[in-house]
Write a protein that binds this DNA or RNA. Structure first.
Lengths: 262, 262
DNA sequence: TTGTCTTATTTGTCTGACAATTGCGGGAGT
DNA sequence: ACTCCCGCAATTGTCAGACAAATAAGACAA
């Protein structure tokens, strides 16, 4: 965070209130670099719908005033958002928010902004549903095409899950287990997608682990997956993963049922 | 393109050849804005493996010299690549290329750079495989949860495919058909993912359409999908989509078999 | 050998200026 | 009154130079 302490510009009582107010000083979250902070602030507000798709947002100079940063910083932030397809910029017209279907929702930053917003329940549901689509097929592909080394990695992760001394390490091994399966699937796109899903559901993940009173059962489910892949039985792998997901669905159901508000 | 004609810096015979050569003038593709051009140039070279993951790339000043642009432009380009997780920057150390599994492969620009590179066959194979995983389930979900309006849109697209006067319009209707199904699936992540896949396979798409001597057959396959979703039969929808994909697999096989090099 | 200090390099930020683009309104011509 | 063209102004795009901050690497002392 490089924002100067002093350097308060004088009044700037320029008459505006044209398109959107957005007046006054907006404090930036401390800790990172300024452009990242601005990008996060803008990105969050866009994703939350504060600036509707198709709309024009305030110009760079205005943001510079509001955030008390230079225009360079604002520009770099806007370029980052443009790289995520949240908006496009054109001279004279400004930066226009793209329609939602153009947004790169698969970007983990965008996803994080999304899950911090109002309709996070909706997106979390979509994510879990996504796992049902992706993971059984990934396991089936892994069972079919895995190499010996990849199998080795999967087994290591599985064993580490079983012998983990605490929940944190167990959760880490769990993620590793998933990732290794995705790697073994041989599909280059499955890996980043799976990583993205896992990191987005990370919170959910540890909660499930905590909630699972019956760790033995959960471990059995994982062992079954490992075995199916080891024996190169795609269908068995599919079924085993479905069982595991079913289990975690139940955990989520319990968790929601418990009335865990926010 | 805003690069000045004049303004040729003098010699700059500074001794270096430190990490990577990259000396001399690198011309930028004409047509867009400078930062977009630089981002594309750098992104392409990174994705193609010219700068290996974990490596440090030349500093901003150097790129500014090589591309004959200001450092601001280089910085904005680098920020765009950082937003796609291709690299991270830290003071004093420079910009380091991230490991490939961190790259946002689901970004359509990154994907485009990828498909223009050497191992495009590999990535195209992964994409088509992806369709086998995604689309049947999407259609099943659509069959289950579609609204009346969504069904209407799907039918319209299907009919428009049948009555299209030329290949271009037929291809457009085809894409629309897919997108409407994804929308009807009710999963917010399926839509952007599907759009991304379709746009990446666009070229492949039209080729398939061209290649398909038997348009009637292809249309029947689409009609079956439409019917299954209309009748809200998820399993039938899954099967119908699988048939369609099988057909397009065959077309791709034929096309490759024909010896279409390059 | 180890810990600390200095230094050099690189990104980060600020500032001010000008260029390029283009939506919009006003004026000329019919 | 209507249409077309042109200049204006607002906004992003680009440039240049300066300084701040961070930190890796080497120098030096204990």
């Amino acid at each position: 965070m490089r924002v100067k302490t002093a350097q308060l510009r004088k009044g700037t009582g320029l008459g505006q209130a044209k398109r959107i107010a957005s007046s006054g000083h907006i404090p930036l979250p401390r800790g990172g670099s300024a452009h990242a902070a601005v990008a996060e602030a803008l990105g969050t507000r866009i994703v939350r719908g504060e600036f509707p798709p198709g709309g024009i947002l305030p110009n760079e100079a205005r943001w510079a005033l509001d955030f008390r940063v230079s225009r360079s910083v604002v520009r770099e932030a806007i370029k980052m958002l443009a790289a995520k397809n949240l908006l496009t910029s054109r001279p004279k017209v400004g930066s226009r928010v793209e329609p939602r279907e153009h947004w790169n929702l698969l970007d983990h930053e965008v996803l994080a902004w999304y899950t911090s917003g109002p309709n996070r329940a909706n997106i979390l549901r979509s994510l879990q549903q996504f796992r049902h689509i992706i993971e059984p097929e990934a396991a089936a592909l892994a069972a079919e095409y895995r190499s010996a080394e990849q199998m080795e990695q999967i087994s290591i992760a599985c064993q580490r899950m079983a012998t983990a001394p605490n929940l944190a390490e167990r959760s880490a091994a769990d993620v590793r287990f998933h990732v290794e399966i995705l790697k073994a699937s041989g599909n280059e796109l499955l890996l980043p997608l799976g990583v993205m899903i896992d990191s987005a559901l990370k919170n959910l993940f540890v909660l499930i682990t905590v909630e699972a009173g019956d760790l033995h059962h959960a471990q059995d489910l994982h062992n079954n997956i490992e075995k199916a892949i080891r024996q190169q039985k795609p269908n068995a792998a599919r079924v085993a993963v479905r069982k595991l997901l079913e289990n975690s669905d139940n955990m989520i159901g319990k968790w929601i049922g418990k009335g865990t508000r926010r």
